[in-house]
């Protein structure tokens, strides 16, 4: 065991794991975090807490993680390289593990240009791959990046993100392999809509044996409406929403679109359960936390197994 988190235990026991996601508020309202967390309690192994997601300032991820721990949930602390240099990144992981955070997700972070403070300076002292390596070094060698010993041991289950749908496609599996080589214990993918492309991506990953070196969780975000599908297709960088997805949502009455979106997510999860190399799903029901249960239950994944 690297960190002995619930997520790590579930994956290493061979269970099909489920993670959720929660975006902290644009303010310091702890109650809102607790409220959203309530919907996810008991239905996922752990919950990703986003870090200034889409470059919009929000309650610090580590703080929202602590609120979750206090509520009896397990957080995955997301960290982006955009907002802090290597000193702050290392300091934060020491603080986070001291607070009982056991999972981290290392990301480059969206560029701030479309965020709430586009005029800000960006940092990118390290990139996401280098951040994975930094945390692995701190955990396994108990050393800072400068090779000096650190006091204690930041035991942390290290995660990375992978977007199978960004370009150039032929380099995507290689980049995943780099993240694993750098230190990723688990990987969560970008939300998947183009199943054909994802199958191809997984096949390449399995051919390289990556699924044996790291747990790969497939990303699922239910579509709430035709509007959301069209928006994602057009405006979200690195998102691949095939026309067939939009068509299927259009084929039902407007009032039924949300239910149809959930149905589609369930069908996807059913396929992921069978797919070679997929160790679990990452359900990102963004600002829709209260519908996550329907999806997870619908996919036959409740109750969650208990491991210790």
């Amino acid at each position: 065991m690297k960190a002995g988190s619930n997520l790590e235990k579930m994956l290493s026991a061979g269970h099909f794991a489920v993670t959720g996601e929660l975006g902290p508020p644009q303010g310091n309202n702890a109650e809102e975090v607790r409220h959203k967390a309530g919907f996810l309690k008991g239905i996922v192994e752990s919950v990703n807490i986003t870090d200034n997601q889409t470059a919009v300032v929000r309650m610090a991820s580590w703080a929202a993680c602590k609120i979750l721990i206090d509520e009896g949930l397990e957080p995955n602390y997301q960290m982006v390289c955009r907002d802090r240099n290597r000193l702050a990144l290392m300091a934060d992981i020491l603080g986070a593990t001291a607070l009982g955070i056991k999972n981290v997700l290392c990301l480059s972070g969206d560029h701030q240009r479309f965020g709430s403070h586009p005029e800000s300076k960006n940092v990118y002292d390290l990139d996401s791959v280098q951040l994975l390596a930094a945390f692995k070094k701190m955990r396994d060698e108990k050393k800072f990046l400068n090779d000096k010993d650190l006091d204690g041991s930041p035991e942390i289950f290290i995660g990375a993100a992978s977007n199978p749908f960004a370009d150039p496609f032929e380099f995507r599996v290689t980049r995943l392999a780099k993240k694993i080589a750098a230190g990723a214990d688990f990987v969560q993918t970008q939300c998947i809509y183009n199943m054909d492309k994802f199958r191809l991506f997984m096949k390449q990953a399995v051919d390289r044996g990556l699924h044996e070196k790291c747990y790969i969780l497939a990303g699922v975000t239910p579509m709430k409406s035709v509007g959301m599908a069209k928006y994602m297709a057009k405006f979200v960088p690195g998102m691949d929403v095939p026309e067939s997805v939009v068509k299927r949502l259009q084929s039902v009455d407007k009032k039924q679109q949300a239910a149809e979106g959930i149905k589609m997510a369930i069908e996807q999860i059913e396929e992921f359960k069978q797919m070679d190399g997929v160790a679990g799903v990452h359900v990102m029901a963004i600002e829709w936390e209260h519908r996550a249960k329907e999806i997870i239950e619908g996919a036959g994944l409740l109750p969650r197994p208990v491991v210790d």
Binding site: H111, R113, F114, S128, D167, R175, G238
Partner: peptide
């Protein structure tokens, strides 16, 4: 745009940057 040494990031699309 992010000075990545281990790119491309997940925002790279059709040869263009996410920004």
């Amino acid at each position: 745009s992010k000075s990545l040494m281990n790119g491309p990031c997940g925002g790279s699309a059709s040869g263009n940057c996410e920004i």
